[in-house]
């Protein structure tokens, strides 16, 4: 072929089609070849250093012993090590002591934020803003008390409010009037407040009793916020007529805070209490 190559001296491979289309044997540019061999060398080196070749059940391990899980674990250990200094201090402190120490309180808030997001935020909102049927944690109106100890207790043991349905002992008209008085923040102005025994739980002044978890009816803050298109009065009346957690009334309000004592460690609960306290309503 080389003897009768019609295109001599141009470095073709001798493969010629259609008279003049021919394959040339020009080498790729040098930089390209360097890059080509360098990537092969890289590939081989990488395979020695890192897990790569799938031989048998598992890939080869690589002489550096690197694994993703290990790297993750190391990262995690680093975090734990940084936190350990604080965590060790927190261990023997009460929530109240933590609050008294600004540095530790800041650490607590920062470090338990994620846990709050996982455990508490689904009902109470990421900022403690509450939600339909779930109380606001950022205000200073507490059903069961706003000291950090009671908050801790609430998280550990859970809470369940109780109010019997009053539909049987109050006429619709009476319930209406009573709801009006409560919505105006002045429950004692309605004689029924005393006569029908509301005072037993909500107190002579209507300000509630934290021992029982009964709501303060005078401060304009409502445990059950009105739903869509409802006035405050409508929602108060609903509560009066059907009660809270009253099993005899199918329309009753549900208000249960589950206990987390068996799901979270004591330290976690303590930290969460500090976090909730720091929303701005702690007492």
């Amino acid at each position: 072929m080389a003897d009768n190559n019609p295109f001599p001296g141009e470095n073709n491979t001798g493969h010629i089609w259609d008279d003049n289309i021919r394959e040339l044997a020009n080498p790729p540019p040098r930089w390209w070849m360097i890059a080509f061999w360098a990537s092969i060398a890289w590939f081989l080196g990488y395979g020695v250093l890192y897990p790569m070749y799938p031989i048998g059940q598992k890939p080869t391990e690589g002489v550096m012993g690197w694994t993703q899980i290990k790297e993750y674990q190391e990262g995690l250990d680093e975090v734990v090590a940084v936190r350990a200094e604080f965590e060790n201090q927190l261990k023997d402190m009460s929530a109240k002591d933590i609050l008294a120490n600004p540095g530790l309180a800041d650490y607590t808030v920062a470090s338990v934020k994620v846990l709050f997001g996982d455990i508490c935020a689904p009902c109470h909102g990421g900022g403690g803003q509450g939600g339909p049927g779930f109380p606001v944690l950022a205000d200073d109106d507490w059903l069961f008390g706003g000291t950090v100890e009671t908050i801790e207790q609430t998280i550990a043991m859970g809470r369940k409010g109780i109010m019997t349905a009053h539909g049987k002992i109050l006429s619709d008209d009476e319930a209406d009037k009573l709801a009006d008085a409560i919505a105006a923040g002045n429950p004692t102005s309605d004689p029924n407040f005393l006569q029908k025994g509301c005072i037993a739980c909500h107190g002579m002044d209507g300000k509630g009793m934290q021992m029982l978890g009964s709501a303060n009816l005078t401060d304009g803050i409502y445990r059950f916020v009105p739903g869509e298109g409802e006035s405050i009065k409508d929602s108060v009346k609903q509560t009066i007529l059907h009660g809270v957690n009253d099993v005899t009334d199918p329309q009753t309000r549900e208000a249960v805070m589950p206990s987390f004592g068996d799901r979270l460690s004591k330290d976690e609960i303590k930290k969460l209490a500090v976090y909730v306290y720091k929303f701005g309503g702690g007492q």
Partner: peptide, 18 residues
Amino acid sequence: HARQPLFVLLSNGSIQNK
């Protein structure tokens, strides 16, 4: 300014922002 909640009502009738 804290977003959630934008404000809260306190029991003495004040509004609180964080």
